[in-house]
Computed example of a mutant assay.
Amino acid sequence: MLLPALSLAAGWFIVLGNIALAPPLLAFVAADLRMSGTEQGAFLVALPLTSFLGNVLFGPFVDRIGRSRSLTLGAAGAMLSLLGFLLVDDATTAIALRGVTGLLMPLVGISVLPCVTEYFPAGRRLALTGYVMASGSLAQMVMAPLAITLASHASWRWGFGVLAAVAGLAAAGALVSMPNRPRDARPASVRHHLRSLLPPKEREVRFSVIAFYLFVLGLFSVTALYPTWLLANLATTGDDGGEAAGVLFLVAGVAAVAASSSLGAIPRRWQRHVLVASLLLPSAVALALPAVPGHYGAQVALYTALVGLQSVASPVLRARINQLADEDDLSTVNASLNAGYQLAAATATAVAAVLYGLAPSFWLNSAVAAAGFLAAATAVLHLLRRPTTS
């Protein structure tokens, strides 16, 4: 079962790697392709906008065509669109390629975690979910520095080439190792095309999905402006703030990969307790961040703890949602999670900017984040007090 696991990890890597790739390469791409300010903005937003559209459109259909086939088609298409950057010579084509890549990414992102449920035995699913999501943390940690290094010493195009190679591995691995299992078509619904934006029908799944949204709102309320706040505080010490911040985020990234990868060691009887703790404890960590603004060591420890807890909460909660969801609706539910993640992250980032403007001390951001984490934990606790079908 190693090849299917590696294929799913490669799929999740390109989903998160595509998000992390464009911002650090923007200056190189803009200079080479002579982009205007408007074109630079379009280059950045093309992928998330079309990705959201893809989640809404494709979610209800992935279960019908088969998750393995969806993963293969999405990864193969992404490989071709990413290879297009090796030849692109104008801004319009580059923006269009980012849009096409974004539209294809949901075919991968919607399929990966449901494939864990479909192709692996129940006792291994949480561990596999952790490993797969750890690959996303790894992508976020390595793609920016790798892309900048390649751009500085060779060409910015090779960053896209690296992702294209990983996409090819994901497509080939899924094609070879995971036989496709399409689901029977269901009667069409008047709101069929919007199902990915609607709360799941099952009560346990609905509350768990809402908890996921609340957690994402809390997370981005504190993390979106944290680098800005951190650099502002580091500047007052007279040290190299950029280098210190880089070390902090590197340590946190390593912790995220380690935390996700260790989920298989959690005994089954402790999984619910771990879920509640990983949703609840970030509230205390978020409130502690602005309490020690001038203590670099404390900031490293606190932010690493926050990222580590997030790297436990997300896969455990998503694994629980996939366990509770109807087998024929797994991909639709995952499309809802992905689309909701994008909406919640965008909303929280916008709110975080306003909060930081009102209180540069960062207390408002931390308080709103803590409220989101507490609300997520409360929603899950409300479910756990009642008997479930799991």
Rank of each mutant, 00 (worst) to 15 (best):
A350G: 15
A291N: 01
A232R: 13
A31Y: 05
G54K: 06
G99P: 02
I19H: 00
W12F: 14
H193V: 14
A379E: 06
A10P: 03
A9M: 14
A9N: 03
A122Y: 08
G17N: 10
S366P: 00
A375V: 11
R34C: 03
L280D: 08
S152L: 12
S262R: 03
T388M: 09
G41V: 11
S331Y: 14
D63E: 10
V205N: 04
G123Y: 02
I210Q: 13
V300H: 03
N334V: 05
A91C: 08
F212K: 09
L53S: 15
A78I: 11
L231V: 12
D63V: 04
L343H: 06
V316C: 06
Q342M: 10
S137I: 00
A139W: 06
A369E: 02
A122H: 11
V354P: 02
V312W: 03
P179N: 08
R183T: 07
P282N: 05
L44G: 01
R183Y: 02
F43H: 07
I14G: 02
R385F: 00
Q140A: 12
S208Y: 00
L26I: 11
T228E: 13
L330G: 09
I65M: 13
L330K: 15
T228A: 12
V257D: 07
I14A: 00
A259H: 11
A344K: 03
I95L: 12
P290M: 12
A376N: 07
S7R: 04
R386C: 05
P282L: 12
G308H: 02
A154S: 10
T349V: 11
L26Q: 02
R272F: 01
Q40N: 08
A91P: 11
L71H: 10
D240K: 06
E202N: 09
A345G: 12
S283M: 06
V292G: 00
T389E: 13
A30K: 15
L138F: 14
